[in-house]
């Protein structure tokens, strides 16, 4: 993708500390925008879940979406790979583009969108009937790839990227759900990585994990940002500060503020943001 695309970038500057990019990236050379949402409105029947969300998410970085329960953050995330369409009665207006391509154009197949925009869920869900190895390659196999050497290579690569290879390399034929909770979640990450998407959406990926497994997955998120654009919904503000380069704050269906993570947490511009991050809410 061309890094020089002159796209408007809203309040984005690579923060120095947690970024995987070189720390001395000049603010005058903003990173390319991977996902761009314009005036996104999402309805569930009569419920207006997301209101006029406009957001430019830079490529190869980690973007956190925070906000209280029911603020529309997960809904917004799910419409980035058209998963919200599975919910009966869900409707969306506005536009979402990936590398300038409209994901909601009539000729675009949602299946293809999801191949480019992968997703990790709150509850790890490796397929119980498949082995660890097959869990990683299932996305490729069911999309018609038969070349065994290639599949093997992709499997190892994905498991290494998910920091799981060393733990499972001798157990690849064991069932996917024989792993521990944290390993299962990393297996799901490997499974998503194996189809080589451009964007990885994570919907509270660590909320079911113990603190040690959480740290492991967080470290992994940081490494994955070298290759993927990561958008993570999290309940934990601490997690947002630990893993993300920029953070969006959603409240009551609106995107209230979007800024580099350090800026948003140290110097919030909106009073709702300040109230939320300082724990004075309601």
């Amino acid at each position: 993708m061309s890094a020089e695309t002159p796209r408007p970038v809203v309040a984005v500057r690579m923060p120095s500390a947690p970024s995987s990019a070189p720390a001395d990236v000049a603010p005058t050379n903003p990173p390319a925008v991977a996902v761009s949402a314009r005036d996104v409105n999402i309805f569930y029947g009569a419920k207006h879940a997301v209101i006029d969300a406009t957001l430019d998410i830079p490529a190869r970085s980690v973007t956190a979406i925070i906000g209280p329960s029911g603020c529309g953050k997960s809904t917004f995330l799910r419409c980035l790979n058209r998963m919200h369409e599975l919910t009966p009665g869900a409707r969306m207006t506005g536009s979402i583009t990936l590398d300038g391509e409209n994901l909601y154009a009539p000729e675009i197949d949602p299946t293809v969108v999801r191949r480019r925009v992968g997703m990790i869920f709150q509850k790890s869900n490796p397929f119980p009937t498949l082995s660890i190895g097959d869990n990683v390659t299932v996305g490729l196999k069911l999309n018609g790839i038969r070349d065994r050497a290639f599949l093997r290579e992709r499997m190892e690569d994905a498991l290494r990227k998910a920091a799981l290879w060393d733990e499972v390399k001798d157990d690849l034929s064991k069932p996917g759900n024989s792993l521990s909770g944290g390993q299962q979640q990393r297996l799901c990450i490997a499974r998503a990585v194996a189809v080589q998407p451009e964007v990885l959406l994570m919907d509270e990926p660590t909320s079911a994990l113990d603190p040690i497994a959480t740290l492991k997955v967080e470290g992994l998120i940081h490494d994955l940002a070298k290759n993927f654009t990561i958008i993570i919904v999290t309940h934990s503000m601490q997690q947002a500060t630990r893993v993300s380069d920029q953070t969006a704050f959603f409240y009551l269906g609106r995107m209230v503020e979007f800024a580099p993570t350090t800026e948003l947490f140290n110097n919030p511009k909106q009073k709702e943001t300040e109230a939320y991050i300082s724990g004075r809410f309601g």
Binding site: M83, T111, R114, G118, M119, N125, F127, G139
Partner: peptide
């Protein structure tokens, strides 16, 4: 569990294959 269906769809697998 629905999670398996969603996981499959999120991998860009056609629904009938899932």
């Amino acid at each position: 569990p629905n999670g398996y269906r969603e996981a499959g769809l999120a991998l860009g697998i056609a629904k009938w294959k899932i």
